[in-house]
Amino acid sequence: MDEQKIRQEVAIRKLLDRMPQHVAQSFTEEQLLHLKVALGARKWGRHKVDVRGTLKVPFIPQQLYYVFLIGRNYRSLSRREKRISAFMVTLIASLWLCFCILFGLLVLYLVKSALGINLFEGFSLGIWGWFKELIK
């Protein structure tokens, strides 16, 4: 690739446009190629959700910035990150399983109550009465 072609590429042109003219002209073709590789390796910069901004907080003279990113993680995880990830997956799966079991028990209880089946005479959790009031 000749030097004029590399200088016309968008990423290199934007980079060189931010520099003083004499500095931008001082780069060799080899240096520009290495800059292109370094800039091209930044594929991690694309995110599905990329929200950035600044906040002015009262009584604090400096502004604070925030970054909210959501996207695929292309990095390889460290051992600690893998443990945390495994723990979070286990926790979420356990919470989902508990929710499903409790919801299933609630549905079974409501069906039992709708059919008029009493497991213990004179004892009620009050869920059937609450449910009847809710659907009125």
Rank of each mutant, 00 (worst) to 15 (best):
M1G: 12
M1N: 08
D2K: 10
K5Q: 08
R7Q: 06
E9Y: 02
A11D: 14
K14N: 12
L16Q: 05
P20Y: 06
H22I: 05
Q25T: 07
E29K: 09
Q31L: 03
H34W: 08
L35W: 06
L35A: 12
K36L: 08
L39N: 01
G45D: 04
H47D: 11
V49K: 11
G53E: 04
T54G: 05
T54W: 05
V57M: 12
I60M: 13
P61L: 07
Y66E: 08
Y66F: 15
V67L: 12
F68N: 08
R72Y: 07
Y74H: 12
S76L: 03
R83K: 10
F87S: 05
M88K: 12
V89Y: 05
V89R: 15
T90A: 15
L91P: 00
L91Y: 10
S94P: 00
C98R: 13
C98N: 15
F99S: 11
F103D: 14
F103T: 13
G104C: 08
G104R: 03
L105I: 13
L106D: 07
V107T: 10
K112E: 00
S113M: 03
S113I: 01
S113K: 08
G116A: 04
N118I: 00
L119M: 05
F123Q: 04
I127H: 01
I127E: 06
G129A: 10
K132D: 05
E133Q: 10
E133S: 14
K136M: 06
K136E: 13
K136D: 06
K136F: 03
